[in-house]
Design a protein around this nucleic acid. Structure first.
Lengths: 115, 115
DNA sequence: CTAATCTGCAACCTGGAGGTTGCGTAAATG
DNA sequence: CATTTACGCAACCTCCAGGTTGCAGATTAG
């Protein structure tokens, strides 16, 4: 493991854990799935069809908003939530670092066995 | 949003939420970072340098093991934990579905504006 | 054999996540 | 203007995640 990769994993850990946590809930994944379709939706719309209360959905949306996976804009009496892809990209980069580190290990192991 | 993509997001949601949740903790991300280096380590080794108790680390390892991000093998008096890359790959695929859905939206929006 | 090491199990504690209900207010509707 | 709709705030509840301590058993070391 190179020092560069290890430090990348360390430095970004604190920043990324809350992102994973925000996605670590079935209800919130459902909200993300609805919103990444592109069309901004109000809280009431997002509550439709759910077994949960509007307030519960609101709390989940706030969690996603804190993680910046979603942004809200108040328009009139309703607040519209829209998807922001940037944190998803960031998380994928982090996972790529892990995979990369693992692949390097495998290739080292392979060359070791081949000697 | 095509029906195929939407159903993929729905079907896999229940399976993926626990995976994200398992990664949604700084301590566990730290453990993953150590183990994806390739070398299997014992609980005591993984506890070294941490401010937490061995028992706390053990609990975190069990969470990672339930998510199959890590596997343990008891050898003698110590149990060795090793990294398993498969769930990480699975998570990346899921994030790719979300990104793909978002990109499709953008391209539709773009062609709409260009008309 | 004895002592040190590594672990598992169980009890216990605490804070916060996830959920509900109730109420008040602003905005759209008719 | 009266009513419905959409929302925010606050209090409250329950449960479990995350952490600790204590103890006992198995394994290794000297």
């Amino acid at each position: 493991m190179s020092r560069a990769v290890r430090s990348s994993l360390a430095v970004r850990r604190q920043a990324h854990a809350p992102l994973f946590a925000a996605l670590g809930d079935e209800t919130r994944l459902s909200l993300v799935a609805k919103l990444c379709g592109g069309q901004p939706r109000s809280i009431s719309q997002l509550t439709e069809g759910s077994k949960l209360t509007r307030q519960a959905i609101t709390k989940h949306l706030r969690v996603l908003e804190d993680a910046e996976i979603v942004h809200s804009v108040r328009t009139g009496r309703e607040s519209l939530f829209k998807f922001d892809p940037e944190p998803i990209v960031e998380i994928k980069k982090y996972l790529d670092l892990i995979s990369e580190q693992w692949d390097q290990t495998l290739s080292r192991l392979k060359s070791f066995v081949e000697e």
